[in-house]
Amino acid sequence: MSLRSQLLAAACAAVCAAAPLPAAAHFQLVFVEDPLVEAAGDLPLRLVFWHPFENGQVMAMGQPQAFYAISRGKRIDLMDRLAPITFTGAENAAAAYEASLPITRPGDYVLVVEPAPYLEEAEDVFIQQLTKVYVNHAQLPTDWMEPQGLATEILPLNKPYNILAGSTFTGQVLSDGAPVAGVEIEIEYMAAEPDLATNTAKPPTAGPMRGGSVVAISDANGYFTFGIPKAGWWGFAALGSGPVKEHQGKELSQDAVIWVRAWDVQ
């Protein structure tokens, strides 16, 4: 099947509907205010495990297993740039991290966090969300279209830092580099963004969807497509798409997460 045919099939197969999942979606953030960087230097970041659509519960993050960036195919370790903070949302405060990304030359910087598994006590299940965010310096694309070799990840088929609001985003769910069919992809709008100056949540600009979580389903080739209705940050979490299914004797949901930035046409 040609790539065009695969994308058309994905667009037809993708489903946007209420799903039998908790109304509040867990989402790992690697937050940057603006992914389009004009000047070189250190770019401030925040790592928060949160419910940003409804500005809900903040989950306490443990020390990440890995935190790095990929630029021109080379890995930049960022673990020594992590510093613990407390992040405060509307419901509670919990452990999070601040960090920075050294921007030294034009191109893409693919930020990756591999967090420690988090025990969701209400369900007695561990969650580990392997998360990617893309930053670009000087409008030179270099890495965004390549997989990064994670245990599970979402490969973007649209440039993920300048999507047009009102257009679509297509991704492919991979596990150990192979497409994964029939995966539920939870979709989250970052209605409340972190305030970097205070490490608190800004007031939300939208309310959560009626009917619960918004979900798409990957097709036979791992593709899904979602129409982006509004400018801002959008997150996609492929639930349980990873190869690791157990941690410390309990079920593990190893999820692939990607955040993309949409913009209004000016």
Rank of each mutant, 00 (worst) to 15 (best):
A116M: 13
Y118V: 13
E121A: 15
E121T: 15
A122Y: 03
A122N: 05
E123V: 11
V125N: 06
Q129W: 08
L130F: 11
L130P: 10
L130S: 09
V133K: 02
V133T: 15
Y134I: 00
V135Y: 10
V135R: 09
V135S: 06
V135A: 07
N136C: 11
A138G: 02
A138R: 14
L140A: 12
P141G: 00
P141M: 02
D143Q: 02
P147F: 02
P147K: 00
Q148N: 08
Q148R: 10
L150N: 07
A151Q: 11
A151N: 11
A151W: 04
T152A: 11
I154K: 10
L155E: 11
L155K: 12
P156S: 04
L157R: 08
L157T: 08
L157M: 12
K159N: 09
P160M: 04
N162Q: 13
I163C: 02
G166S: 07
G166T: 08
T168V: 13
F169W: 13
F169Y: 15
Q172K: 15
V173Q: 06
S175L: 02
G177M: 03
A178G: 00
V180G: 01
V180I: 10
A181N: 06
A181C: 02
A181P: 02
A181W: 08
G182T: 09
V183K: 11
I185N: 10
E186N: 10
Y189V: 04
M190N: 07
A191D: 05
P194K: 02
D195E: 11
A197Q: 11
T198M: 00
N199D: 15
A201T: 07
P203E: 01
P204K: 01
T205D: 06
